[in-house]
Computed example of a mutant assay.
Amino acid sequence: MVEVRLENLKKYFDRGRVKAVDGVNLTIKDGEFLVLLGPSGCGKTTTLRMISGLETPTEGKIYFGDRDVTYLPPKDRNISMVFQSYAVWPHMKVYDNIAFPLKVKKYPKNEIDERVKWAAELLQIEDLLDRYPAQLSGGQRQRVAVARAIVVEPNVLLMDEPLSNLDAKLRVAMRAEIKKLQTKLKVTTVYVTHDQVEAMTMGDRIAVMNKGHLLQVGPPTEVYLKPNSLFVATFIGAPEMNIVDATVVENDGLFLEGNGFRIRLPDDFRELLEGYIEKDVLVGIRPEHMTVKGVSTLEHVTRTAEIEGLVDFVEALGTDTIVHAKVGENIIKIKIPGHVPLPIGENIKIEIDLDNIHIFDRDTEKAII
Rank of each mutant, 00 (worst) to 15 (best):
339 H>F: 15
21 V>N: 06
128 L>T: 07
241 M>I: 15
240 E>Y: 04
33 F>P: 00
278 E>F: 01
79 I>L: 04
74 P>V: 11
284 G>K: 01
101 P>K: 09
254 L>C: 07
309 G>S: 07
236 I>C: 02
162 P>V: 10
6 L>F: 10
261 F>G: 07
105 K>D: 15
224 Y>R: 04
99 A>P: 15
237 G>Q: 08
358 H>W: 10
335 K>N: 09
252 D>A: 11
36 L>E: 12
220 P>S: 10
153 E>V: 10
47 T>R: 00
9 L>I: 14
181 L>K: 00
168 A>C: 05
330 N>M: 08
332 I>K: 02
166 L>F: 02
196 Q>L: 09
108 P>V: 04
171 R>G: 02
298 L>D: 08
289 H>V: 04
153 E>P: 00
173 A>F: 02
147 A>W: 02
149 A>F: 06
137 S>I: 11
194 H>F: 07
317 L>S: 03
16 G>L: 10
316 A>V: 14
15 R>M: 13
185 L>Y: 05
207 A>P: 00
156 V>T: 03
292 V>I: 15
357 I>N: 01
205 R>K: 12
358 H>C: 05
177 E>S: 02
342 L>Y: 08
41 G>Q: 06
260 G>M: 10
72 L>Y: 13
49 R>F: 13
274 E>N: 06
17 R>W: 03
324 H>M: 09
217 V>L: 09
94 V>D: 10
316 A>S: 12
285 I>K: 00
119 A>T: 07
241 M>E: 07
199 A>I: 12
229 S>A: 09
287 P>K: 05
136 L>P: 06
73 P>A: 14
194 H>G: 08
196 Q>C: 07
325 A>G: 04
177 E>A: 01
27 T>L: 03
91 H>G: 07
270 R>G: 06
73 P>S: 12
344 I>L: 15
227 P>L: 02
127 D>T: 15
47 T>Q: 04
112 I>A: 04
227 P>A: 05
157 L>I: 09
50 M>T: 10
175 R>C: 04
362 R>Y: 06
111 E>D: 13
278 E>C: 00
164 S>T: 13
331 I>C: 00
235 F>V: 08
80 S>Q: 01
287 P>L: 09
329 E>K: 13
176 A>T: 14
230 L>G: 05
202 M>R: 01
288 E>T: 04
367 A>S: 15
251 N>R: 12
200 M>V: 08
342 L>M: 12
196 Q>N: 07
311 V>Y: 02
332 I>T: 05
274 E>M: 04
161 E>P: 07
69 V>D: 14
77 R>W: 04
206 I>R: 02
50 M>A: 09
231 F>T: 13
183 T>K: 13
317 L>Q: 03
259 N>H: 13
210 N>W: 02
75 K>H: 14
117 K>F: 05
116 V>C: 07
148 R>G: 11
198 E>M: 06
37 L>G: 03
171 R>Q: 06
133 P>Q: 11
133 P>S: 13
9 L>F: 11
292 V>F: 01
63 Y>A: 14
68 D>E: 12
136 L>E: 08
246 A>P: 00
70 T>R: 04
296 S>Q: 04
113 D>A: 15
120 A>S: 11
11 K>M: 12
333 K>N: 12
275 G>F: 01
168 A>Y: 05
207 A>S: 08
119 A>Y: 05
341 P>Y: 12
